[in-house]
């Protein structure tokens, strides 16, 4: 059960991390693309941003996820990283507790 929750936490952390990275990439594209009509992609082709002038003087914006595969791969990678970090944290804590149990003076 504990392991299941660790997996769930890691998947959620990975999802939020992927969302954050994708949004940050779009915002960076938004503020770095100067010429109207340029189609800019970021995050390994995962997100896109395009601004175009219209005849009435207004502007259309196209933004969002271009390729879901990139997003899903990023989510999986971040989830695995989060899960490994949790495992390592748990292992280090148990190691410290083991040391403290054998050497009371370390506490």
């Amino acid at each position: 059960m504990k392991r299941l929750f660790q997996v769930l936490n890691a998947v959620l952390a990975g999802f939020v991390g992927a969302l954050l990275l994708a949004t940050a990439s779009i915002l960076m594209l938004m503020f770095s693309t100067r010429a109207p009509g340029t189609r800019a992609v970021g995050l390994f082709g995962g997100v896109l941003f395009q601004a175009a002038d219209r005849s009435d003087g207004s502007m259309t914006l196209e933004l969002g996820v271009e390729n879901w595969t990139g997003f899903v791969v990023l989510w999986v990678v971040l989830s695995v990283l989060a899960f490994v970090s949790m495992l390592m944290f748990g292992w280090l804590r148990r190691y410290r507790e083991g040391l403290a149990a054998n050497r009371p003076d370390l506490e």
């Binding site: 939020v16 969302l19 954050l20 994708a22 949004t23 779009i26 915002l27 997100v47 933004l63 969002g64 996820v65």
Partner: peptide, 11 residues
């Protein structure tokens, strides 16, 4: 924050 991110990504 999550709502804004989802909005930007046009899910």
């Amino acid at each position: 924050s999550i709502g804004a991110m989802v909005g930007v990504l046009q899910v």
